[in-house]
């Protein structure tokens, strides 16, 4: 392999990380932006998506079907959770943080009791490699990149143009005024939480064959997507995209030269320094 091959491979791998990170972080950011709840169980929703694919694998289903199933099931679970539990946390940051953290612990331990603490292997649905500019690249990773990019574009477009997106933005800007105009804010809340959960579920389903799937995997993704939101700034999806690029990119580059955990520590230190210099986030104008 030439140097160019290595660099190209690295860029593509980083792009995959960034794409998946964006799926998770966007869900987190819209839930925080709309409902003011920082969902500390978001990583666990991703973990549930992974186990959705594991179940599909055990049942002998097609893995793509498994990813679809994971997104639907985790989305429905998110809707249910919002209706029963999360809505009781609105209005208090502390309640939101403590409640969702407790929820996360319960999800982790439930999965641990069912599947055990060991990592579960998942086989990728596409196994061949494809040649990009002469560099062999695994087909499945490319598919993951394409799907996450497509989903994000779809999400941005529907947020911009669809009626439901316009209603969501109205609630986001002024909840009382939106309700006066006949928009049912509680439904928007439930729908948004469900959408965020479903995005985490898809992300989990997509990366299941690429990473080691165990009950405790959620925390790492939670931390990364929070750093993404902190660095990128809250309030704009563009900021989240930029933050995902910075965090995922930095991690990809640093972990190439040293270990993954060192990369995460360096990225956290960078995020703290960024917060000192630009409290409003890198990609938000004052």
């Amino acid at each position: 392999m030439s140097t160019l091959d290595v660099v190209l491979l690295q860029i593509l791998n980083t792009a995959v990380i960034v794409g998946v990170l964006m799926l998770v972080a966007i869900g987190l950011a819209i839930i925080y932006g709309l409902m003011d709840v920082l969902n500390l169980a978001h990583g666990e929703l991703l973990m549930l998506g992974c186990y959705g694919v594991v179940i599909a694998n055990d049942l002998g289903l097609n893995l793509w079907l498994g990813v679809l199933l994971a997104s639907v099931i985790v989305g429905l679970l998110g809707w249910l959770l919002e209706r029963v539990f999360i809505r009781r946390l609105y209005g208090s940051h502390f309640a939101g943080l403590l409640g969702t953290w407790g929820l996360g612990i319960i999800l982790v331990q439930t999965i641990r009791l069912i599947f055990g603490p060991e990592p579960v292997p998942v086989r990728a649905p596409l196994e061949g490699a494809i040649s990009i500019l002469g560099t062999p690249f695994p087909q499945y990773r490319l598919a993951v990149l394409g799907i996450s990019a497509g989903l994000i574009v779809l999400l941005l477009l529907s947020y911009r143009y669809l009626t439901i997106g316009i209603k969501t933005r109205a609630v986001f800007q002024d909840q009382e005024m939106a309700q006066c105009c006949g928009i049912r804010a509680p439904r928007i809340y439930a729908g948004t939480f469900s959408l965020g959960a479903s995005l985490a579920g898809v992300a989990g389903g997509l990366i299941a064959p690429l990473v080691s799937v165990d009950p405790f995997m959620g925390a790492g993704y939670l931390v990364r997507s929070f750093m993404t939101v902190i660095v990128g700034g809250v309030g704009s999806l563009g900021g989240v995209a930029g933050g995902a690029g910075v965090i995922g990119g930095a991690e990809g580059v640093i972990s190439y030269f040293s270990s993954g955990i060192i990369a995460q520590v360096v990225v956290l230190a960078l995020a703290i320094v960024v917060v000192r210099i630009r409290p409003q986030g890198l990609f938000v104008r004052k």
């Binding site: 925080y32 920082l38 500390l40 940051h93 939101g96 943080l97 925390a219 790492g220 931390v223 929070f226 750093m227 902190i230 955990i261 995460q264 520590v265 956290l268 995020a271 703290i272 320094v273 917060v275 000192r276 210099i277 409290p279």
Partner: peptide, 25 residues
């Protein structure tokens, strides 16, 4: 860094949570 960066409320919780996670790892 955190207090001069006006990190407060939920953001402070997140940064401390990230710190604990990474120190453990």
């Amino acid at each position: 860094f955190l207090f001069y960066g006006k990190v407060r409320g939920p953001y402070f919780v997140i940064v401390t949570l990230a710190l604990a996670f990474l120190m453990q790892a």
